[in-house]
Design a protein around this nucleic acid. Sequence first.
DNA 1: GAAGCCAGAGTTGTATGATAACCATGCAAC
DNA 2: GTTGCATGGTTATCATACAACTCTGGCTTC
Lengths: 239, 239
Amino acid sequence: MVLKLDKVNRGPHLSTLVASSISREIAEGRLKPGDQLPTEQALAQTFGVSRNVVREAIARLRSEGRIWSQQGRGAFVTDATNTTVLTIDYDALQQANAFRSLFELRGILEVEAASLAAKRRTESDIAAMHEALDIMTGAPYGSVMWLKTDLEFHRTVAAATGNPYMVQFLTFVSERVRDSILAAGNQQRSDDMASITLGEHRRILEAIEAGNPEEAQAAMQDHLAGAAHRVGLPDIKPD
Amino acid sequence: MVLKLDKVNRGPHLSTLVASSISREIAEGRLKPGDQLPTEQALAQTFGVSRNVVREAIARLRSEGRIWSQQGRGAFVTDATNTTVLTIDYDALQQANAFRSLFELRGILEVEAASLAAKRRTESDIAAMHEALDIMTGAPYGSVMWLKTDLEFHRTVAAATGNPYMVQFLTFVSERVRDSILAAGNQQRSDDMASITLGEHRRILEAIEAGNPEEAQAAMQDHLAGAAHRVGLPDIKPD
DNA sequence: GAAGCCAGAGTTGTATGATAACCATGCAAC
DNA sequence: GTTGCATGGTTATCATACAACTCTGGCTTC
């Protein structure tokens, strides 16, 4: 039997609620950049929690770059654009348009990564890619292991560019895309998909190994077009 | 007389230090996914701070998706791939190689954004780009206003792609690049740089306005090559 | 022997009060 | 006008206590 349980809504921590609440105030413009937040004591009182909880919320917002605080002065909303972290809202991604946009961004990076990888790959890069592809070949299509090594293969391609930020960004984007696909659960499965997908991967690997950027780029492009189709995203590149 | 004083290094909050320390333990593998963290009391003791500070640090790590915690059990390291935020370490960026990598990533996104913008721009996109360019024309080269509108121009180009994530990622990367340039302070300044830079921008805008993706792409490519040269990054595209 | 119950220790979540460090302001003294 | 100082307000940190929860081990009951 397969249980499909929602994650237990173990009441999120109070600090999380407070942080979200303040975050919303900022997002919706009731707190503008430069504005001073109410004092911790005042916030504690209005939310009905201890000052401690408020401080945990503020620590979180500070780490996200949304506010800054100074001892003896207070806490202030930062100049909007200066967040030090990049986040992707999970709920927003459930909308088709948002998902399509993220998929497009991923494609841009993947295609360019494949091209760069073909130019710069080292022996150990090639070996890592082969290994990932081998494991994938032995895994059942759609299984956890399959998805994991699929990501791993793409990660090795990104790594072959020699650009650590390429790896970081691509991994981040790909994971969000994967999560969204899993959540939607509209993956089509059929037996020949495994061999098709594997074939696409193999073509990418061969092009990179051969040091052919244009072919690697084209192979990745085709692979992504195929992937888009498999998750029900037609015409990702109509223009 | 002009004083050149560094901002006093007002020590970052203790909770920040604790969070960084734990973060490093995770990043360097001494704490593996699934591992349980020491108890809050133990952490407080080893760091020599109050439990309160430890909790603020943990609240922060939790919001970043690096750990999760449950009342009565403890705090655990999450399965690496589940971080919900993407961060770029400021110090690491001071190294030339890292900076070059980030600059390259920015270039990839910018070039593709210019191409997409040429295909999809709307009237209001064009207007916004013109406005940014106008303000830039009136600002002194290298001034805060100049830098601000420079970023703003690129943001309008990204916005014209219609892809919100493109805007988000490009803005994020560009700001980190800008911060790093400002920190290094090795900007060369000369009078004709203003007109050169403006000319490059104008060429991009014209190509986008004309709906010519290839020319937009090429113009952006040249602009970035010029920018790389101006910040002392030669041969960004030698391969 | 197995299942269920219960108490206790350990841990996180939250509340509360106190102290130190720091900032802004106004006023007195010079 | 400037300096120095006192004062009130705020954040940063500490310390302690209690509530809520989990786990474990022993006990009871069958």
